[in-house]
């Protein structure tokens, strides 16, 4: 079994049946998880910000950083693993996008990340079948390739399945 760690702004995809894709402490970042049951493949991108226009150079260097560049980049990785080019058959799950305790929404980057991720997914005709987003807590995500399970964890609470 090998753990594939996906850092902030990184993405990864695998077909290794013993692999676990993992991303730590999302905070206001969003993890977009793609599962292909037919190919037994999974991919994940750890998105930090909604739009690449804020820093196009960064988006070139690390497309996973932004929702609008990260999702197409992750789909390209999935395609390399044999997933269908039109993204058909992919199952999408979303996690993260936490917010600070704030009645105003200025600091709500989490919400903007979630909306931008959904918008970028729609462009490929995709939408989440499950999501665990928002709230005032940071999530860690682990995807088991063997079972296809997506397990979420956060300090102070028992793990749960998405």
């Amino acid at each position: 079994m090998s753990n594939i760690i996906i850092g902030i702004g990184d993405l990864g995809a695998s077909k290794g049946q013993d692999d676990i894709l993992k991303t730590f402490a999302l905070g206001s970042c969003v993890a977009v998880i793609l599962l292909d049951p037919k190919q037994r493949a999974a991919g994940m991108v750890h998105i930090a910000l909604p739009e690449a226009k804020i820093n196009p150079a960064k988006a070139q260097e690390r497309p996973g950083y932004f929702a609008d560049t990260g999702i197409p980049a992750l789909l390209r990785e999935m395609k390399k693993l044999g997933c269908q080019p039109n993204a058909r058959g992919l199952m999408v799950k979303l996690a993260g996008g936490a917010k600070v305790m704030d009645p105003n929404d200025t600091f709500n980057i989490g919400k903007r990340n979630i909306l931008a991720a959904k918008k970028a997914l729609w462009a490929f005709g995709l939408g989440p079948v499950a999501e665990d987003v928002g709230g005032n807590f940071s999530r860690t995500v682990a995807i088991s390739l063997a079972t296809g399970d997506v397990i979420l964890s956060s300090p102070g609470r028992p793990n749960w399945k998405l």
Binding site: I8, L26, G27, A98, F137
Partner: peptide
């Protein structure tokens, strides 16, 4: 927000 807290008290 950047995911760099100190545990259960984050956010």
């Amino acid at each position: 927000m950047g995911g760099c807290g100190t545990g259960a008290d984050t956010l």
